[in-house]
Amino acid sequence: MWYVYVIRSLAFPEQEYVGATADIRQRLKDHNAGRSVHTPKFMPWMLVWYCAFPDKHRALAFETYLKSHSGRAFSRKRLLGPG
């Protein structure tokens, strides 16, 4: 299985990050250890949403969508709710 996830900074709650991985627990540990190029300055992170996909290609396609303008709006309205 592959996972698409949204994490939110505990120190800066307005900061969110969307990613995809085959190992969601390890990936969250990596974000919180500063081993991701885009997330270390907003540590620590908490997982706020994730979804499992049967294969990598579908997960990466949905990750790409969630990172788009319309995908961010969809995420705020349908997945994460008011913040």
Rank of each mutant, 00 (worst) to 15 (best):
M1W: 04
M1D: 15
M1F: 11
V4E: 02
V4R: 00
V4T: 02
V4G: 02
V6C: 11
I7E: 00
I7T: 11
S9E: 12
S9C: 10
S9Y: 09
S9A: 06
L10Y: 07
L10T: 13
A11D: 11
A11L: 14
F12T: 12
F12H: 09
P13Y: 08
P13S: 12
P13M: 13
E14A: 09
E14Y: 09
Q15P: 03
Q15L: 12
E16L: 13
E16M: 12
Y17F: 09
Y17P: 00
V18K: 03
V18E: 03
G19I: 04
G19P: 06
T21W: 06
A22N: 15
A22H: 13
A22E: 11
A22S: 12
A22K: 09
D23Y: 01
D23M: 07
I24S: 05
I24M: 01
R25Y: 08
R25T: 15
Q26C: 01
R27S: 00
R27P: 02
D30L: 11
D30A: 10
H31G: 06
N32L: 07
A33W: 13
G34I: 06
R35A: 11
R35C: 05
S36P: 02
S36I: 05
V37G: 09
H38L: 12
H38P: 01
T39I: 11
T39W: 00
T39Y: 00
T39Q: 04
P40G: 04
P40M: 06
P40Y: 07
K41V: 07
F42R: 01
F42H: 04
M43W: 09
P44G: 08
W45Q: 05
M46A: 12
M46C: 11
L47A: 09
L47N: 02
V48T: 05
V48M: 00
W49T: 05
W49Q: 10
Y50C: 13
C51P: 01
A52G: 08
A52T: 06
F53Q: 05
F53P: 02
P54A: 11
P54I: 03
D55N: 15
D55S: 13
H57A: 15
H57G: 11
H57W: 00
R58I: 06
R58V: 07
R58W: 10
A59N: 03
A59Y: 02
L60N: 02
L60E: 07
L60R: 05
L60W: 02
A61D: 12
A61G: 04
E63T: 06
E63F: 00
E63R: 00
E63L: 07
T64I: 05
T64H: 14
T64W: 10
T64E: 14
Y65P: 03
K67T: 02
S68L: 04
S68I: 08
S68R: 03
H69T: 11
H69L: 08
S70Q: 10
S70C: 10
S70D: 14
G71I: 08
G71C: 06
R72D: 07
A73E: 14
A73F: 14
F74M: 05
S75F: 04
K77M: 01
R78S: 14
L79H: 14
G81F: 00
G83A: 14
G83T: 10
